[in-house]
Amino acid sequence: MTDQPPIEEIDQDAAIEAAHHHEEPLVRDLPVRLRELVAVVACLGLGTWILIAGKDIIVRGSAELGPVFWPNMLGAGLILFGAVIVLNNVLRGVRKADVPERITASGLAMFGVTMAVCIGYLLLWNVLQFWIITFVALALFTLVLGGRSWKAVLAFPAVTTAVLHFLFIVALRVPL
């Protein structure tokens, strides 16, 4: 409890920060701003796709606001917001807090293998016994993500599989 600053002090700092909130400096580095174009493309792309795919919806009757009104509104909205993000983020800059942490090469490799294991696990889900594939998947996950000892690669998956088996199959009666 003592390692915390007194409440008043926090409040005072907060108040100052709040008062100067709008002056937070923006990151204006070109790569950071160009990266924002990805977000813009995502908005424009999805918005356009909604408008195009919305043409396939069957419209019956004459009611105000039929089945296409709502999706069209959202598609147009996405395109509009995409345009605003160009003005706001690409041309002006990004708040420092919004620049994400860098992706590491080892992280990317770990991610790739993890996803591959996930998909393999799912494809075998209804084919093999739950506890076999879960044990193997858990062992592979642990191995990929950095566990090396025999406890990590064998004992941990065994215990977790047992817990999962008891919880879902025995207690919740999930047909796994």
């Binding site: 406890k151 004992a155 941990f156 065994a158 215990v159 047992a162 817990v163 088996h165 008891f166 025995v170």
Partner: peptide, 12 residues
Amino acid sequence: LRSVALIAAGLL
């Protein structure tokens, strides 16, 4: 870990 394992084994 050990106690969890024991309990789980027992339940199984």
